[in-house]
Amino acid sequence: MKNKLLGLCILVMSGTALAEEKVIYQYKKYEKFDLGDLEVKGQLIAPGDLSVRERDRRRFELDLYNRTDFDKNIKHDIQTLR
């Protein structure tokens, strides 16, 4: 039993040792960015110029004086007649 277990461990370890390979990393030595070629896809929602939008002012329109009749004058005329 012990022999079998030892043999299994040797087998796994040898597999691991065989799996480790040397990896070589290589980086770019030069990279160029063309900023003029950049494009952004989307919608322009901001206004082109600065302006103040007029707020809706509440306007109170006063009912100005107007004469619709002269009934009081008629009554006054009769009363001042006699």
Partner: peptide, 20 residues
């Protein structure tokens, strides 16, 4: 004077009613 003013009042009455 009473009749004169009354006559004028009658004429003015017409104008006032048209206004109304």
């Amino acid at each position: 004077r009473y009749y004169t003013v009354l006559s004028e009042d009658c004429r003015a009455l017409r104008a006032r009613k048209l206004y109304k």
